[in-house]
Design a protein around this nucleic acid. Structure first.
Lengths: 331, 331
DNA sequence: CCCAGTTGTTGGAGCGCTCCAAATGGTTTA
DNA sequence: TAAACCATTTGGAGCGCTCCAACAACTGGG
């Protein structure tokens, strides 16, 4: 078993460059007031030794890590990839680096991931699609800025899209196309599901239409099941609005199988504008959330607490927009 | 601007519990030979103070971080989510925690992410879908165990599926179905693309068939473009094997638009068994890579270097399998 | 009843870095 | 020519933890 050699330290660089440890520290941090000659000598020595500052020692001494911890609840959900791009953009611009941690769709994992970040003493924590109860997050948020994205979580900073407005956009669009019998397949207890449902009901009633909602749970199979039940129940709706794209695809599939033409006979709309919706083979009309922008705002909220010392929890609501593709048509 | 209060340290816990700092350390690490009474007293004090060990201080003192750094090249690609599950499973079982970092599909980001992990002094690094040149990775791998997943990278440990075998499975299956005119839409320079192509050519020749390959690049649009060109060129193939699922869906779409029935007129096969392939609306026949297993093996390679001190680079090849869905049929 | 052997507990050194007060040395000013 | 000033440089004291040698308090055997 070979002994892995100890990585070089600041001391090693200092000796090789013939200066003090403190001077090396100054150079590594690009501090001013270091003579050009010394700076060059230190850089040279560092390069020759392949020196790399020890992040642990640095955080310990600085008493801050300059990193933001991001808890990604579901790596399979690409929704968050764009959000992370936005977070990354702003974080980098402010001298922070990102560290991610996954949770496997359970409260417990999520809290464990947060716990790990607290041990690392990250400067702020972002939870994408939180599952854990608000109080738990709020507790964690008491020792470090914490922002939740995608689900409204009391007691902490939140960034979400306006689900009610999204549903409203869908209803208005469908009504404009002449649809009257519109059904909503809801998302059960999933994030934002209830607000999408409420938005649907309100918008329908505002138009004097009957808001028919059938249960679902954000999965393809639930969308298919709901559609199948709907078709069996007699006179089918002329438009179906599913709580997310996956359920919409399930419904779409069921309609096709039953011999209906989409959008000729029935229009179908989803929510989230995932990659699936964009597949030209599917071309699903859906609602887009400005994910990257959500990421930016998330980071802004964190920076706001970090730099301005804001204490009160804030909620930022971004505006969704309709993306028309090929599963919707006038009646 | 409110002053965030300093988190409690081991010293604080020690004072509150009326013991020494060292004893608290022993309790936190679940060391044996600590009396039941003291252990309880320390745990109580720690809980009351909401004490959390400082990971930076710990890594510094232990001279190891007990964490594995995972570089995820493309968060949008869910392929790696399952791999990470496998890595996580083995890592947890061996007392390591995971930390992720994203790279945005460029060499530079990837190397920066690796660099960051080196500064954190992670115990091992895993690169999912490496882009950077082998020498660079090899260099990084000289100071810490490094495993590459998905692309063959000289000089470092690698876990990949047997792409040639995967292509062979496809050809054999299609030939068994009676197909003779089979076209491969390749993946350009993407990971594994060339081996898939080679496997296709070899298998076709073994069957005495003419291996026709058209260029592509792993995207939906390239699949559509290739298919469109193929259709214009006259007598269409009876089967199309695309280098990945996305390209296969592009081809599928183009065929449908052109009025061909899939699988009645033409069979289509993809590669990777992504979530898209599994959508019942698509039901793409494809090749599955045992992703979770790949994750496990990845971690095993890392542990092998960590615990056994292995130095020579090793490549682990896992076996792909055919997943038959509804885009293929006998001719 | 003493010494060896256990089991439990402790202070101190040290991990690699930053920060600070103080030292250095060259220049300018009175 | 001495004093005052400036830009640089430096040693030392931590940051919060682990590890180790040493110590304390018991136990049991001869």
């Amino acid at each position: 078993m070979t002994q892995r050699q100890r990585p070089p330290t600041m001391q090693d660089v200092a000796e090789r460059a013939g200066v003090s440890r403190a001077l090396v520290s100054l150079v590594m941090r690009d501090a001013p007031n270091v003579s050009v000659a010394r700076r060059a000598a230190v850089r040279k020595a560092a390069a020759e030794l392949d020196y790399r500052p020890n992040a642990a020692a640095r955080s310990l001494a600085e008493r801050r890590s300059n990193t933001i911890g991001v808890v990604v609840n579901d790596l399979h959900n690409t929704f968050f990839a764009d959000v992370i791009d936005g977070i990354h953009e702003v974080a980098m611009g402010n001298g922070y680096r990102l560290l991610l941690n996954t949770a496997w769709r359970t409260d417990d994992d999520e809290l464990k991931a947060i716990e790990a970040f607290l041990e690392y003493r990250v400067d702020a924590i972002v939870v994408l699609g939180p599952r854990a109860a608000g109080e738990k997050l709020e507790l964690a948020g008491s020792s470090v800025p914490l922002v939740a994205v995608g689900s409204i979580t009391p007691g902490v900073d939140v960034v979400v899209n306006d689900d009610e407005r999204g549903s409203e956009l869908v209803v208005e669009y469908l009504v404009d196309l002449g649809h009257r019998r519109i059904v909503h397949i809801d998302g059960g207890g999933g994030g934002g599901a209830s607000r999408r449902s409420v938005g649907f009901v309100n918008a329908m009633e505002r138009h004097g239409l009957d808001p028919f909602v059938v249960p679902g749970d954000f999965t393809e199979s639930s969308g298919a099941a709901a559609m199948s039940k709907l078709l069996k129940a007699g006179e089918p709706p002329t438009a179906v609005f599913a709580a997310n794209d996956l359920a919409a695809v399930g419904a779409l599939d069921e309609l096709t199988k039953a011999g209906f033409d989409v959008p000729g006979d029935v229009s179908v709309v989803g929510y989230d504008n995932t990659a699936i919706a964009a597949l030209s083979h599917i071309g699903l009309t859906t609602i887009n959330q400005p994910r990257r922008e959500m990421g930016r705002q998330t980071m802004e909220l964190a920076l706001d607490r970090l730099d301005q010392g804001r204490k009160a929890a804030v909620t930022r609501v971004v505006t969704p927009e309709l993306v028309v593709r090929r599963t919707t048509a006038a009646i």
